[in-house]
Write a protein that binds this DNA or RNA. Structure first.
Lengths: 112, 112
DNA sequence: GTGATGTGCAACCAAACGTTGCGGAAAGCG
DNA sequence: CGCTTTCCGCAACGTTTGGTTGCACATCAC
C-alpha cells in the first residue's frame, strides 16, 4: 500500500528554494518577488516563477498593491502540507518499527 | 531563520516515483529494478536510475545476486529522512500557531 | 516630465525524468 | 553442450523544470 499524498502539493514544497521562500514569507509576514530575491541566491525572475508555482497550488496568495505584487502564505494550505509531511514520516517510522519487531521475533525463535 | 535539512536527502524523497519505490521496497522487504517497474507506471530503466539516486544518498543498498541486483531499504537512513519530514512539518505548524496567537492578541486588544 | 523601481514576458541553457534501442551476462532447458 | 530466455547496463534522444539574461511596460517620487 502507498501513502496517499497530494503530489502537486508535495512537489511544490519539494524544491529547497520554495521551502526557503515559505520560511521567509512566514518570518516576515509576506513579501514580493524582489524582496525575497534579495535574501535568496537566485534572481527575481526565478523567485517569480516559484511564486507562481506556490500560488497555483494555493500555498501563497498574491495581491497587486500599486506597482508591486505582495505575496502571503495561506495558513490553511500550509498546515495541510505540514500534515502530509508528518503523515508520511510517521508511516515510514511505523513500518520500520514493525519490520524491526518481526526481525527480533525471528531472532528470539532461533535462539530458543 | 531557515529549517536546517539535508537537501540531497530531501530531494531524493521529493520525487513521487521514488517515494512509491521506497514504499514497495518496505512492503516487500526488497526488490529489483524489474520487479519494481512491474508495479509502477514507468519503465525498468527509469526505475534503475531512481535506484541509483536512492543508492547515492544511502536510502537503499544494492547487492548483486547472480544475474540480478537486489535492493533493500537502509533502515537508519530512511528513519533520518522521516525525522526530517517531521521536523519541517512541526516547524511550520509551530510558526502558524504563533502567528495565529499574535493575531488573536491584536484582535482582543482592539475589542477592548 | 523624468528618473528610479517593480513587474511581466520571451529566449535561452542546463539538469532531471522519462522513453526506446541496443549488447552482454547469467539461468533454464532441449 | 548449445539455444533461448531473462535480467541488466549503456547510449541516444525528447520533455519538463529551475535558472539565467534582456527588454518593455507600469507606477511612484521628485
Amino acid at each position: 500500500m502507498t501513502v496517499a499524498v497530494n503530489d502537486d502539493l508535495w512537489s511544490a514544497i519539494g524544491d529547497p528554494t520554495r521551502r526557503r521562500m515559505l520560511d521567509l514569507l512566514l518570518a516576515d509576514g509576506g513579501g514580493t518577488a524582489t524582496t525575497l530575491s534579495e535574501r535568496l541566491p537566485v534572481t527575481r525572475q526565478a523567485v517569480a516563477k516559484h511564486l507562481a508555482v506556490l500560488d497555483r497550488v494555493g500555498l501563497v496568495n498574491g495581491t497587486p498593491a500599486g506597482r508591486e505584487r505582495r505575496y502571503q502564505v495561506d495558513d490553511e494550505q500550509l498546515a495541510r502540507a505540514a500534515a502530509q509531511l508528518a503523515t508520511v514520516g510517521a508511516t515510514w517510522d511505523a513500518r520500520l518499527r514493525r519490520i524491526k519487531r518481526i526481525a527480533e521475533a525471528i531472532q528470539r525463535s532461533k535462539e530458543q
